[in-house]
Write a protein that binds this DNA or RNA. Sequence first.
DNA 1: TTACAGTCTCTACCATGCAACAAACCATAG
DNA 2: CTATGGTTTGTTGCATGGTAGAGACTGTAA
Lengths: 245, 245
Amino acid sequence: MQHKLCCMQETMNTVPGRTTEKAAGKTVEETALLDRVRKLVLGGDFPPGAPLSEVFLAQEFEVSRTPIREALKQLQHEGLVEIRPKVGTFVREPTRREIVELFQLKESFEGLAASLLARRGYVPELEILERNVAESERAAEDQDADGYARLVHEFHWTIIRGADNRKLAEHYERLMNQLAYHRLVVRTVEHPGRILASTGEHRAVLTMIQNKDPFGAESAMRNHVYASSKEALSDNRPRYGGSTN
Amino acid sequence: MQHKLCCMQETMNTVPGRTTEKAAGKTVEETALLDRVRKLVLGGDFPPGAPLSEVFLAQEFEVSRTPIREALKQLQHEGLVEIRPKVGTFVREPTRREIVELFQLKESFEGLAASLLARRGYVPELEILERNVAESERAAEDQDADGYARLVHEFHWTIIRGADNRKLAEHYERLMNQLAYHRLVVRTVEHPGRILASTGEHRAVLTMIQNKDPFGAESAMRNHVYASSKEALSDNRPRYGGSTN
DNA sequence: TTACAGTCTCTACCATGCAACAAACCATAG
DNA sequence: CTATGGTTTGTTGCATGGTAGAGACTGTAA
């Protein structure tokens, strides 16, 4: 049950603040185009099942079909679209079941990350987390939902980065991309009561990490993710109310 | 810490017995080509860092550069090659650190799978596992290393499938693809002593699952994966002795 | 009305030409 | 000998035309 440990440097942020920064193995243009297409799909203008033909996207973004094709393959693989060979590409509707599955994975990933972080010696992430949780508590008091959501996002990513396991970060990023569709719809999953509980859970996780207690940290984090995903799944099933453009 | 639960149907097996079966969203030709290129890379004829030019592969496999390009993107993303934009594609050497990171993830994934499986009601996987472990014990007595390796492979995949979480299976498959390079080199990681211990650990995992004890199952599985990966990482650092062709 | 067969259209898939970039090479000057 | 600049070569990246497959449609017959 013990873990060896190992390094890591950069990870992209998830959708909300996704800056067009270069990903490894892709040119900047490729990344930019990918982001534009992803935004289009996530924007909600296309309902699930809507076709995304290569030619349409090509003239929409004023490039040839080839780079579009590559971007679509990437998105397929992120789970946002479905490619039916020889037929076409379609916006994919994540089923409720898939969301549940992804949340199970999220719990596992973040638990691992917390555990790995707690196992490390001194790391600058600890101070960042301390500040983050303090700010979260203030934001919760002030009922600042947007600020709170941003801080939560930062909290989780800081722990992932702090785990110092690049492969974990890669898988986590994939996961979050797949959840992004859902997250855009049920934007602020946390209602006031939940925010209070959530803040407490963040504090608990941080304390365990500060105590260098990997088991406690993992446990606390899993509890937190479980609670928060149960909340997210509670009643608000994914609804896609975008115009069909 | 409780888990909801959820289904799953087909997963491809990992490298050794990788049959050219159709993957979702790809034509059979695409999958076949991908497998051929993957085999070429994994075959060891190209040392890490060796260039894999599109034109070369294109005439090697008698197709155009376009499908080759797509296959390479897929392999990049499996971690087997590195694409340097505008420069070329190169066989990638997984660092020791990456292997460690991957094993950490493996532990987490399989722990989750065991836990989810233990949580389910009656499932046919249980009988398969029972037979599998029994056969493993016989193979261990008979010093049948090859048979044992095959059974171990089956054991782990059966649990992943039994977890009934398709997204988990997808991520696990990616992970195992990334580990495949390493696994080809240190083929049979288990020496006789380790095999004995390993068999016992399998039995322990199975018992916990039969007892419907998710925590115990997760714990036992993580212990097992940890022990087995420590063994794999012990001294045999990846060596690439293939001819340069 | 329904079932089925033939056709027809729309789509991805693949091939190939062209352009632009990166890096290796060589020559020249300090 | 070293450093620097220009040239040359090899590679990907993008555009576009042809092809073949999948699915929709229509008409016909039961």
